[in-house]
Design a protein around this nucleic acid. Structure first.
Length: 102
DNA sequence: ATTTTGACACTCT
DNA sequence: CAGAGTGCCAAAA
């Protein structure tokens, strides 16, 4: 068992990430706003980096506001394509079509 | 306690 | 659309 989830902050973020529908993506800023840290999107990314350590979460569905994927996480591209998300030639996601809104 | 770093966002160029 | 600069908050050293 991991007592890591003692971090309420991470718990809320992971809850949201776990609710992201397939074929959709969310920006760190959106999640940050959902948990009440709208000015602190970095914290979201930091937690997601440890997301696999917390458990099994679709962290690959989270991108930055530019539609860019996470560095050091190339598998993310394959996972998104597997869900039907078409990436641009630059590796950017088409947020206009795939951004998840609550 | 202060400084540095981080899977970012926003504005201007 | 991409790059550079600035701002925000929190954890780690």
């Amino acid at each position: 068992m991991s007592d890591v989830l003692n971090d309420e902050l991470a718990y809320q973020i992971l809850e949201i990430v776990n609710e992201i529908p397939e074929g959709k993506v969310v920006t760190y800023g959106q999640i940050a706003g959902m948990i009440g840290r709208k000015n602190n999107s970095r914290l979201v990314g930091k937690v997601l980096s440890k997301a696999e350590y917390y458990g099994d979460y679709p962290c690959h569905r989270v991108v930055n506001h530019n539609g860019r994927l996470a560095p050091g996480f190339e598998m993310q591209e394959a996972l998104l394509k597997s869900e039907g998300v078409i990436l641009k030639d630059n590796g950017h996601v088409d947020l206009k079509k795939y951004q998840w809104n609550i």
